[in-house]
Write a protein that binds this DNA or RNA. Structure first.
Lengths: 114, 114
DNA sequence: TTTATGTGATACTAAATGGTATTATGTCAA
DNA sequence: TTGACATAATACCATTTAGTATCACATAAA
């Protein structure tokens, strides 16, 4: 069965939640650490975290009296792939990714980039 | 200035609107043609079209008594790129695109893969 | 000109969203 | 054990959202 895109795109519809995802992409954080970054109450941030968890975009683990929120990036892949369908309409569609791939290839050949 | 992601991700948060975008990716359609594909009133579909237009995701042109809605795929690119940041967490992240690029490279070197 | 058609605009409703404030609960530390 | 701390849960509120129904308007067709 195909992954359910709806909760993922729903979660991405809010800028606070997108920011949280980027933050958790750097490192796992407690609820307090996340909410310290925003000008809103901890309860409000917590609700965003619940939505992200419901959509499977983050993993939540209770450790003692604090809970660690960590990114589950795999859940974003289907949304990325969905948007990738429109790739056919973009001129420079492979530009950014091609750079990364060429780097891999040059690594294979032993070239040095430092 | 960076493109404003918010109206784009907002628009993508609804399944009807995502379906409309895919449909318009096939061909431009009038309001009636679009709403015929959904089990809701024309007014409801029209509101979705307005949101898509507000976010710059479609182009709307009045021709006589009908209005042609066409995809503006370029507006989706920033959302795709935003999600592409998480690319670093995906294992098979470049698989599909890498095939296409390797074909380009082999074309450059004159290799033949047929 | 009349009539039918495609659309836009408005008012309305129920439910979801994004936020606050408050209270309760479990856990670490002195 | 007491107190501070991190979090969870709940109730509440204003706004937005997603839908309906209805009416007005411009345009194509008879």
């Amino acid at each position: 069965m195909p992954p359910n895109l709806q909760p993922v795109f729903r979660a991405l519809g809010d800028p606070t939640r997108r920011d949280i995802l980027r933050m958790l992409g750097q490192e796992p954080m407690t609820v307090a650490q996340v909410s310290d970054q925003f000008d809103m109450t901890r309860a409000a941030v917590k609700k965003h975290l619940v939505m992200l968890s419901d959509g499977g975009l983050i993993h939540v683990e209770r450790r003692g009296r604090e809970t660690i929120n960590s990114l589950n990036a795999a859940a974003l892949k289907p949304a990325f792939d969905w948007l990738g369908w429109f790739d056919q309409f973009w001129e420079d569609r492979l530009a950014a990714l091609q750079i990364a791939i060429e780097k891999d290839i040059s690594n294979d050949t032993g070239h040095n980039h430092d």
